[in-house]
Design a protein around this nucleic acid. Structure first.
Lengths: 201, 201
DNA sequence: CCCGATATTGTGGTCATCCGCAGTGTGGAA
DNA sequence: TTCCACACTGCGGATGACCACAATATCGGG
């Protein structure tokens, strides 16, 4: 897993350097990309941290880049930078899930704070997505029959009822049930229910 | 419970009338308020629907009104209208949870669509909050001891283990456990776990 | 002082769960 | 064809969950 980085995407080298310097003096690791195309080409699903994205760039704009990232289910927070933004643009990007939208010239401290908060947000999301992925992986290991049985178990039904509904014997249900617990890494139906319905907040 | 309404808050009577007419021709019930103060004074926690809030008003501005609503844990979506907004203002309000931020002059169809989506959003949130409140109410009916036992049951522990940890007999645990199920309106630990850890999404 | 809410415990029994042991049958991959 | 994953089943026993019946004990009000 690659380290958390602030990915700076801007076609102006002076800005890239300035941002990199600014972030590094605050102990935030950064990596730069000279264009949206370059970033999208080098983008890996295991990237994490955040993205600082200039809107006005030659060729592909930051807005278009953002749309591509959305299609790719990018989960990193995106912070837009722009010198010529307008209200509808800001509203639209934020409603699409952008983390923030800053106008140039921006305050150095404000930017660093936003970047740090974005990276913290990503770290939290990352952690929760990993446990989600683990659960999904375990679910995938269940055979179709085991998944059926699991659903009925989660519905709170007795083994006897499950056996009737599936037209199999109770003993078979017990075997499936046991395998489900084993493969899902739990030791009771209660733990299973909690694993598949994690807390809100 | 009062009906879902679009609450229009604007100190310009012409705009209030126009918006009311616009929404009513699309079968959206609306109610108007001539100032932020008037709205805040008349606001009831059981209001639902959405709020269409003008930013520039005499006395209290829409932004200040929004802040008050946030403190009051208002759950209705807020749609800002403004003729003189800027990007930082839009970004700030959206990050604080505003539903949308529209600049005048706005497109009638666009506004109606936003209002309708906001009201749908609120209806969903309302429903989920009601079930949450029901659960909270039932939890409050549990005696302290019952809550303790419930926690341990949710931890997947056997009655025997719970009895040891609380230094009481198994029989007592059974009684508490039974009362918990009864008061919470469930018939198994699995249902209880699902009730207290409702799905995400 | 009596009552209701809360917490506690025991007995004995029924039903559900879990498990080891032992085995059958099927369909696909090597 | 042989091997393996998957589904299926029976038996019997150990353990846990649940419940009706029956009590004791504390505490705060009325």
């Amino acid at each position: 897993m690659s380290q958390a980085l602030a990915h700076i995407v801007d076609d102006d080298e002076a800005i890239r350097d300035a941002l990199t310097w600014l972030l590094r003096t605050r102990n935030v690791a950064a990596r730069t990309w000279a264009s949206a195309e370059e970033f999208l080409a080098g983008w890996q699903p295991d990237f994490h941290g955040c993205i600082v994205l200039d809107i006005r760039m030659k060729e592909m704009s930051g807005l278009e880049c953002f749309d591509v990232l959305l299609e790719r289910n990018n989960s990193m927070p995106v912070i837009f930078l722009t010198g010529h933004g307008d209200v509808p643009m800001a509203v639209s990007t934020l409603k699409k899930g952008a983390f923030d939208f800053l106008e140039k010239p921006f305050d150095d401290n404000a930017l660093v704070d936003v970047v740090i908060r974005a990276m913290e947000t990503d770290a939290r999301k990352q952690a929760s997505q990993e446990t989600q992925a683990t659960v999904a992986g375990r679910l995938a290991q269940l055979t179709p029959r085991e998944q059926e049985v699991m659903q009925l178990v989660l519905a709170g039904k007795f083994n006897k009822v499950i056996a009737d509904e599936l037209n199999i014997s109770m003993r078979t249900v017990e075997v499936h049930r046991s395998r489900v617990f084993e493969k899902m890494g739990v030791r009771s139906a209660v733990e299973l229910a909690q694993l598949l319905a994690p807390g809100r907040d």
